[in-house]
Design a protein around this nucleic acid. Structure first.
Length: 274
DNA sequence: AACATATACAACCGCACACAA
DNA sequence: ATTGTGTGCGGTTGTATATGT
C-alpha cells in the first residue's frame, strides 16, 4: 500500500543538528502538553521548523528526561554483546533491557566499539562464532579462550532458541507471522523469565552460577515500550497458558531452556572481552 | 601550523507494521 | 477489503572532534 513520507515537503524545514533553542521549544511543548501528541502536528504547534519525524527522533534519542547520558559501563557493554548474540541487530529489543539507553546509542556503540573488539578477538560480530581464518587479525592472547567460550555460547544459544521456538509454536496460532526470535524474546520477558530471574536473584548459589542478562539491569522502565509490548502480547496470545496449571510441562521445559542458557559459563565469565 | 585521516555520535531515510476510517 | 496515518525500527549518512603525519 505504501505511504507517503512524513517529510515529503521539506521546503522551509530545517535539517541537521538541533540548536539549544529548538531543544528548549520541543521540551517545553511536551512538558506543557503532558506529552507529544501527534508528532506530525507537533512542529507547527511548538513553533519548530522541523518535520515531526525529526522531532520524535530528537526527543526519543536525546531529550527524553530518563535518558542515561555518558559512557557505557563494562557491564552494559557485556550485556549488549550477550543480547546481540541472542537477538541480533534488533537494537530496540536490546535497548529495552538497558534502562536509559536508546536503540540508536546501542547501535552506535556496537558499530564503533563492540564490533571491532569482537573482530580483533577473532569473533564474527554477526554470528558470534569464532572466525578461524585470516580474514580478521586474531589477538592470540584471547583467541583460544574466546573461541572456546563462544563455541559453548553459540551451542547453548542455538539449542535454547530452537527449543523455545518449538514450544512457542504450540500456542502461536494467531501469531504465525512472528519469527522464532520474537517468541524467544517474549519468553525471556514472560512470567517464566521473570519468575526465573526472581528465583535466580534470591538463590544463594546464584553467585556461583551465571548471571542472567536481564538480572544485570533493573526492571523495565515506563518507556521500554518494546518490552512491555512483548510482555503484553505474550500473555495475551498465550491466554494465560503460562500461569495455567495444565501447562506445567511447558513451563518446566521453558525454565529448563532458560536455565540452559543461564548456566553457561560465558554468562559469568565475560572477562575475556575486556 | 596545516592538512589528512580516523573516530564517535547525532541525525536522516525509507520500509514495515498496527490501527482506524 | 482497502486505504491513509502514525510511528517504530534498522541501516546509512553527515558532521564535529581527535589523532596522526
Amino acid at each position: 500500500m505504501g505511504r507517503k513520507p512524513c517529510c515529503d515537503d521539506k521546503i522551509g524545514l530545517k535539517r541537521g543538528p538541533w540548536t539549544s533553542e529548538e531543544d528548549e521549544a520541543l521540551v517545553n511543548f511536551i512538558k506543557k502538553n503532558g506529552g507529544h501528541g501527534s508528532w506530525r502536528s507537533l512542529p507547527k504547534l511548538a513553533g519548530l521548523l522541523r518535520c515531526g519525524k525529526s522531532c520524535r527522533l530528537r526527543w526519543t534519542n536525546y531529550l527524553r528526561p530518563d535518558i542515561k547520558r555518558g559512557p557505557f559501563t563494562p557491564e552494559e557493554e557485556k550485556l549488549v554483546i550477550q543480547l546481540h548474540a541472542i537477538l541480533g541487530n534488533r537494537w530496540a529489543a536490546i535497548a529495552s533491557q538497558l534502562p536509559g539507553r536508546t536503540d540508536n546509542e546501542i547501535k552506535n556503540l556496537w558499530n564503533t566499539h563492540l564490533k571491532k573488539r569482537l573482530i580483533s578477538m577473532g569473533i564474527d560480530p554477526q554470528t558470534h562464532e569464532p572466525v578461524a581464518s585470516s580474514t580478521y587479525p586474531i589477538d592470540k592472547s584471547h583467541a583460544s579462550t574466546a573461541t572456546r567460550h563462544m563455541a559453548q555460547w553459540e551451542s547453548a544459544r542455538l539449542e535454547a532458541e530452537a527449543r523455545l521456538s518449538r514450544e512457542s509454536s504450540l500456542f502461536s496460532n494467531n501469531t504465525s507471522n512472528k519469527t522464532n526470535s520474537d517468541y524467544f524474546l517474549r519468553m525471556w520477558n514472560s512470567e517464566v523469565g521473570q519468575s526465573f530471574r526472581a528465583k535466580n536473584k534470591s538463590d544463594d548459589d546464584s553467585k556461583a552460577r551465571c548471571q542472567s542478562p536481564m538480572s544485570l539491569v533493573g526492571s523495565s522502565t515506563p518507556e521500554s515500550n518494546v518490552k512491555e509490548d512483548f510482555e503484553w502480547k505474550f500473555s495475551d496470545s498465550c491466554g494465560g497458558i503460562v500461569a495455567d496449571s495444565s501447562s506445567d510441562d511447558l513451563e518446566d521445559s521453558s525454565d529448563t531452556a532458560l536455565q540452559l542458557l543461564l548456566d553457561f559459563p560465558i554468562y559469568n565469565d565475560m572477562n575475556f572481552l575486556e
